[in-house]
Amino acid sequence: MEDLFKSATSVLITPKCYDVFFKDWNFLNEECLKSLLSRGLGLGIVAGSLLVKLPQIVKIYSEKSAEGISFWGVLCELFAIIANTAYSFVNRFPFSAWGDAIFLLIQTAAIMTLQLAYTMSTGVATGFVGVTALVVYILMSGLVPLSILWYMQAACIPLMLAGKLLQAFTNYKNHSVGQLSLATCLLLFLGSVARVFTSVHETGDSILILTYALASLANGIILSQFYLYWDMDKKIK
């Protein structure tokens, strides 16, 4: 029975902290409480990521338009997410520290697919899906050396910033947030802020921590533009 309970709680509690909590009965251990909070928050982010970009996807699909959404911005973001997913998977980081990247990858790829379908053709969109799936498989299969994945993860920082700032510039140029979803942008901002905390405690990887810290800043800039251009968007509508 104890083994079953230990196995069930292993998602949230490390073996070391299990002994601290349930053998030493020390529920106030600071290190283990931080670990529990980090893992719980990480799993919450993973669960939330299942739907984080769904409002954006629904909005593009219902309007049959990706107007106001930066093509290059989404592409840079997609590359950054793919690199982050492969790097974390191959390093065997705890799933709670990076699992949301898988669902963000799928949803970001869906946004890019819709964008290509509405601006180019369904054939181009279909080809994009195939190429993306192949790239993800190769990167996560272990065929690519970890050193290369590290450099790809490092490249995520300027690419992620470039993607977000391109979107922010598009908003500034149009004085409108176009088809961007407020719910999606808010959830991305909150998720990236929370990921700074979980990355510190779950991985200790400086590249990941810096990536999420800068992502929080960039997401905050885009989120602020909803306030700046709110009246302008209402007039356009």
Rank of each mutant, 00 (worst) to 15 (best):
124 V>S: 06
194 A>Q: 11
100 D>Q: 13
211 T>W: 06
103 F>C: 03
45 I>R: 12
185 C>F: 04
99 G>S: 11
132 T>H: 13
161 L>W: 14
20 V>G: 06
45 I>H: 12
109 A>S: 03
123 G>S: 05
71 F>I: 05
104 L>D: 08
193 V>E: 10
185 C>R: 09
158 P>S: 00
66 A>C: 11
43 L>A: 09
205 D>R: 14
150 W>L: 13
78 L>M: 03
30 E>N: 12
101 A>P: 09
1 M>W: 13
66 A>N: 12
44 G>S: 12
48 G>D: 08
122 T>Q: 05
68 G>Y: 03
226 F>H: 06
100 D>S: 11
117 A>S: 08
83 A>L: 07
83 A>I: 09
64 K>W: 11
16 K>R: 09
199 S>P: 04
6 K>Y: 07
41 L>W: 06
204 G>H: 02
218 A>D: 05
135 V>D: 06
45 I>Y: 14
77 E>T: 04
4 L>Q: 10
33 L>G: 10
34 K>E: 01
109 A>C: 01
143 L>H: 10
67 E>N: 02
62 S>Y: 14
203 T>D: 01
185 C>Q: 12
38 S>E: 08
234 K>G: 05
155 A>S: 13
237 K>L: 09
166 L>Q: 04
177 V>T: 15
86 A>E: 08
220 G>F: 13
186 L>F: 07
116 L>F: 10
46 V>N: 13
125 A>R: 04
111 I>K: 03
13 I>F: 01
61 Y>Q: 12
135 V>W: 06
73 G>S: 02
83 A>H: 09
178 G>V: 12
25 W>L: 15
2 E>Q: 15
56 Q>S: 04
117 A>R: 07
44 G>P: 13
107 Q>G: 06
29 N>P: 06
28 L>C: 09
9 T>F: 10
74 V>C: 02
78 L>P: 07
21 F>N: 10
8 A>L: 15
117 A>C: 03
72 W>N: 00
229 Y>G: 06
21 F>Q: 10
170 T>R: 03
24 D>W: 02
195 R>H: 03
122 T>Y: 14
38 S>V: 03
19 D>V: 07
24 D>P: 00
43 L>T: 13
130 G>C: 10
82 I>M: 09
148 I>N: 04
98 W>Q: 00
11 V>Y: 15
92 R>V: 03
199 S>V: 05
184 T>W: 10
175 H>G: 00
152 M>E: 03
212 Y>R: 01
24 D>I: 01
197 F>P: 15
42 G>T: 08
232 M>S: 14
217 L>R: 10
165 L>Q: 02
20 V>Q: 08
82 I>S: 01
206 S>V: 15
86 A>S: 06
187 L>H: 08
188 L>W: 01
44 G>W: 11
235 K>G: 07
179 Q>P: 05
25 W>V: 08
141 S>Q: 10
